[in-house]
Design a protein around this nucleic acid. Sequence first.
DNA 1: CATGAATGAGGCTTCATTCAT
DNA 2: TATGAATGAAGCCTCATTCAT
Lengths: 199, 199, 199, 199
Amino acid sequence: VGEQERRESLLAAAKAVFAREGYHRATVRDIAREAGVATGTFYLYFSSKEACLLGLIEEFYRRLMARIVEARAGRGSVLEKLAASVAAVVRAFAGERDLARIVLIQAAGAHPAFDARLAQLHADFARLVEEDLAEAVDAGLLPPQDTGVTAVALIGAVHEVIVAWLREGRPADLEAALPALSSFCLRGAGAGVAERRVQ
Amino acid sequence: VGEQERRESLLAAAKAVFAREGYHRATVRDIAREAGVATGTFYLYFSSKEACLLGLIEEFYRRLMARIVEARAGRGSVLEKLAASVAAVVRAFAGERDLARIVLIQAAGAHPAFDARLAQLHADFARLVEEDLAEAVDAGLLPPQDTGVTAVALIGAVHEVIVAWLREGRPADLEAALPALSSFCLRGAGAGVAERRVQ
Amino acid sequence: VGEQERRESLLAAAKAVFAREGYHRATVRDIAREAGVATGTFYLYFSSKEACLLGLIEEFYRRLMARIVEARAGRGSVLEKLAASVAAVVRAFAGERDLARIVLIQAAGAHPAFDARLAQLHADFARLVEEDLAEAVDAGLLPPQDTGVTAVALIGAVHEVIVAWLREGRPADLEAALPALSSFCLRGAGAGVAERRVQ
Amino acid sequence: VGEQERRESLLAAAKAVFAREGYHRATVRDIAREAGVATGTFYLYFSSKEACLLGLIEEFYRRLMARIVEARAGRGSVLEKLAASVAAVVRAFAGERDLARIVLIQAAGAHPAFDARLAQLHADFARLVEEDLAEAVDAGLLPPQDTGVTAVALIGAVHEVIVAWLREGRPADLEAALPALSSFCLRGAGAGVAERRVQ
DNA sequence: CATGAATGAGGCTTCATTCAT
DNA sequence: TATGAATGAAGCCTCATTCAT
């Protein structure tokens, strides 16, 4: 096997084990066994268990941000951009159930380093949403409001819908929740009767 | 000291230590020391470290539910009841910063038992919200919608605003965010122009 | 067993194991087993394997210095003091074969921290000897010389005689070598015909 | 590169790494990297890390003994031979700082095999010195004495002066200590006023 | 009830050595 | 010969839990 394949296979194994067991219950031995290699091999590709999970988080957020940027391209109004962002986030998590579990549930209180990184990523995303909201308010598309709070609340709504899907499997297909979720978010921000629909 | 006081003092110590360190970094020895007793004494009051945190979670949710019930009493319309519930939740967490950190951040991926319990509590609360929404829809106060998704999203909005306050201390006074949050939640559910204000 | 006894017993075990195996081959488990306790117990008394050996070194040097000071008291001339110091050192090591092995052989290149401490202790002792030599030169008891080099050489002579005893067991009784060693050291420094004899 | 050159280059690398890090902290990977070859290549030239250091020790002692033999040739009296030996040893170490560090400091307690070999080498050298001393005593050049102890003490004096130079860099030029060291050794053995000077 | 010393399982990590290429 | 990825044994240390006092 090539060096890159081995790395991928370890990442896949780590993803599966962290998602299943959580950070602390997952052992490096578990991950190595899942990847079909010896324990020491893990350390040829990651400097530590912590670095491995951090890498997983980084990688996912890179992809997530890319998908958001891509989804926004070609949307006309700010509100359409915002709705497209929400849809992109939901779809990104829907397509990566294990990573979603790790990023949204397992990594939370596991280690100060994860906490710090996750907090920063939440903040990054909140800023993006807040900019959209502010622009929409300026454009008269939304009523004046505390865009900081709205942004955070909006993100929370999206977050929780995904977490509920992860935990309870409801709805079975996460995308089925997207219309209602979009609606909730945009109406919550004060968008008028006509909600933008994003395919 | 009486038996009950000792238990309380251990719970208080556990609360402080878990909030500060997280579940895994907190040691039973830390908790005992913080409570001013010997390590072994801890096990006279809790069967395990896990049971202690579980107890903390239970206790908090009991109080939370009580506050919600109390807040809803005397409200007229369903939407007023719903808004009162949100306000009660926010105020409950605002008044218990340590417990909030534990319940909303630290306990998440720490142990399957916590995950299970937290999931159930989220579900309990979601059901309560959903019943309100359904009733409001029936009464024509809200437009027809997927109340399951709306309920989850609404809870997420509340959750995230509290977490942002815990993590970044913004806003400094959590209750300052309540009007914007309430607005977001009710508008998100489709409530008309006139938002109910709950003191 | 009392807390102090347990500590002593662990120190004794560590002393035996380090002397027998050397720092790296000695495992904490070995030490604990030798002391008849579980592995974890070791860490109730020492913060690390390294700290344990460092403690052993410190303790020995404290005793060594005390014996030197004691041996010098009541000696008349500087040269008698010097000879008494040499005798005290030899006797201190003779009475602590295990510690001698550790301090003079096993700890040498085992860890930078040991190296540093041992170097400092050698330097301390060298300074003491050099002061004696300088005083003796001033008093006309010794010819002018490079007292720095002489001091180091003198210490080396003592060191090596002890090490040879440790390694080859020759002479069987280390003190039997004392007259010849004393003679070598004092004559080497230029002391005249009449060597001081120290009982 | 030829087979012999590669071996030399690995030995040179090992010398540098062992001197810098000590036996245990030095890794085979470090050595290979320093030599600019792959890790596995190391094992084409040495059967083990241990064998490599042992080889270094052997090689150095071979050279050392050769220099001693050479230095003694053409000296007249036994004492001159002895003084020439001491000078040869000092110069050999002075010219091989890294090997000196390894042989005199790093290898000491690192492994039973090293200990054994070093002890034997010390013994070899001690026998050589002792033979000189015995011959000098027979010739009436030195007073009767325990030549075994004197030989060991003499070696220790030389040893320590070199170690002090290695550790503290004092004197900056080791050969500057040679007159005082020679003087100490010969006077210590009982040589009369007239010290032999060896260029 | 209270103590806190003791336990020992188990985790992360390193590194000498091997072997397929 | 040379490579360097892979191995897996082994070590240090932590900490939830127990139990004799």
